[in-house]
Amino acid sequence: MKVFLLTLSLGGILAAVLFGTLTHWDPSYMSIHGWIALFLGTFLSLAVGGGLMALVFYSARKGYDDRIEVETPDPD
């Protein structure tokens, strides 16, 4: 699994560098407002994802995800 993730991440980096090289992409074209928006969007997305995963683990460990058995009274 580690080899797969390493290969996938290195392949993504290589694809990004190759794309930038072939299209003569220059990151200085993005204004400061674009960089701020990119940073905030990335940070907030990771924060929301991390928070939701923390809630999932908290819920599972505290037993909130267990089945509830309803006791019905006997008809006698």
Rank of each mutant, 00 (worst) to 15 (best):
75 P>Y: 03
72 T>G: 01
31 S>N: 13
60 A>K: 11
28 S>T: 14
15 A>E: 00
23 T>Y: 03
55 L>I: 10
25 W>G: 05
16 A>Q: 01
22 L>Y: 08
19 F>R: 01
31 S>C: 05
74 D>N: 10
4 F>S: 13
9 S>D: 01
12 G>V: 06
22 L>S: 03
38 L>Q: 03
58 Y>M: 06
5 L>N: 12
34 G>N: 09
49 G>T: 13
4 F>E: 15
35 W>T: 00
47 A>Y: 10
3 V>Q: 09
38 L>V: 02
10 L>E: 05
53 M>T: 06
8 L>F: 12
55 L>E: 11
37 A>H: 06
22 L>Q: 06
57 F>N: 10
75 P>V: 04
70 V>F: 12
37 A>W: 05
15 A>M: 06
76 D>Y: 04
71 E>W: 05
43 F>V: 09
58 Y>K: 03
12 G>N: 12
34 G>W: 04
11 G>W: 03
76 D>L: 03
52 L>F: 11
12 G>M: 15
42 T>G: 13
59 S>M: 12
18 L>T: 14
58 Y>C: 02
37 A>L: 08
32 I>K: 04
4 F>I: 15
5 L>S: 13
28 S>Y: 05
28 S>M: 01
60 A>L: 08
53 M>Y: 11
19 F>L: 08
13 I>A: 15
43 F>Y: 08
27 P>H: 05
35 W>D: 04
71 E>D: 11
57 F>V: 15
1 M>K: 12
26 D>M: 02
52 L>H: 03
31 S>D: 15
27 P>G: 02
10 L>S: 11
43 F>M: 08
23 T>S: 06
18 L>F: 11
19 F>T: 07
2 K>R: 10
73 P>Y: 01
72 T>C: 03
19 F>I: 06
57 F>S: 11
44 L>A: 05
45 S>Y: 08
40 L>I: 14
25 W>H: 10
57 F>E: 14
4 F>Y: 15
41 G>A: 06
25 W>R: 04
24 H>P: 00
28 S>L: 11
17 V>I: 15
18 L>R: 04
37 A>C: 02
53 M>I: 07
6 L>W: 10
26 D>V: 04
46 L>V: 12
36 I>S: 06
48 V>Y: 08
